[in-house]
Simulated assay, not measured.
Amino acid sequence: MSAPTISTTNMANKPHRSRHHGGGPGPSGSTFAKHLRRNLTAHGFLIGAVICFSLFSWYPMVREFLLAFQKTESGRTTWVGLANLSTVYNDPAFWQAWRNTLLFTVLALVLGFAVPFVVAVVLNEFRHARGYLRLLVYLPVMLPPVASVLLFKYLYDPGYGLLNEILGFFGLPAQQWLQDPDTSMLSVVIAATWMNMGGATLIYLAALQGIPGELYEAAELDGAGLFRKVWHVTIPQTRLILSLLLLMQVIATMQVFVEPFLLTGGAGPEGSTTTVVYLIYQYAFNFNNYGAAAALGLVLLVLLAGVSAAYVKLSRAEDE
């Protein structure tokens, strides 16, 4: 009986198994080191972003929360509980600031939310010079806020302002745009809309260009005019963008500060343009009451967080 033989072919087909005997790292260690070197740059940028957010976003929020329940006098900090909230609540300017802020938000939504959408719909109909028109619309956003405010101060000037010159040309009486409590807030809203509408317009325009042209062709075959196409095609197709920008505009307008501060000095005639954020500014830098300023900021934060939570809940309900 002959001894069994081992085929060289079978040996060649068998996988070669190597053994590691002490010393160097195994495959898992080398793979980890390779991934670490590959992602070292990304980790570096991530760590930098986390540090920036920690220092300039998260830490101020935590610090504000603590200040809302503290009071500092002669360098000594003491816990006062809800005393700062009580001080803010009993201030007569508290409710006036909220009324003015809500009025600004409503007017800004009527103008600042609708006007950019209408401008985007009109720009979308143009077939030529689209780039120049987009630049023209976005130009106010690129201007420094101070320059824009100086422009509107010239337009609103009761003596030689351009708006009163136009009214006089048509035989209409001149208006005290920023000096009259009845028109000061509307004047601020118009200026803020012109200064900030460029970004929203370009976002709407990008969303409109993503709508399939077949939908408009089908609507035209059904005899739909421009208004019906916008109502039945454009708005449903851009519903997500519209709702998101609505939330962002509510949050932004509730924190308005720059426009009334630069146009009317903040308070305006008879306090007609005093907003919540300007009242926070007064508490902190005019009255040196940082606890009250933090308490009012905390109230605004809770309100805006509630609005955001309601938006998320409604969005999930619609998706389901």
Rank of each mutant, 00 (worst) to 15 (best):
G225R: 04
K313M: 15
V302P: 01
T193V: 15
G24Y: 09
V312N: 14
L85S: 12
V189R: 01
Y204S: 04
T78R: 10
P236H: 07
T5S: 12
M1Y: 11
W95Y: 14
Y160L: 15
A305V: 15
T238Q: 04
E217H: 13
V110Q: 05
Y156R: 06
L167I: 02
H232S: 12
M142T: 09
G268Q: 02
T273N: 02
L314I: 12
G291L: 07
W177I: 05
R134M: 09
N39L: 15
W98A: 04
L296H: 00
Y154M: 13
R316W: 13
F113D: 02
V312P: 11
V80A: 10
T193W: 07
G265Y: 10
L242V: 03
L301I: 04
V256A: 11
G159L: 06
E73I: 15
V258Q: 02
A309K: 06
A219H: 09
G26P: 04
Y290K: 05
V277R: 00
T275D: 10
K153S: 13
T8D: 12
E64D: 11
T105Y: 01
L242S: 12
S315F: 08
N10R: 08
R239P: 05
A252I: 08
R38A: 13
A12K: 05
E320G: 15
T274H: 13
L215S: 05
A294H: 05
S74W: 06
D319V: 13
A305G: 12
E270T: 12
G297C: 05
G297Q: 01
L300E: 06
P158N: 05
A218S: 11
N39G: 15
L136F: 11
T253R: 04
W98T: 03
F104G: 01
V62T: 13
P145A: 13
G213N: 09
Y89N: 11
T8F: 03
V312W: 13
A295Y: 01
A267L: 11
R63N: 15
G198C: 04
F117C: 00
I241K: 02
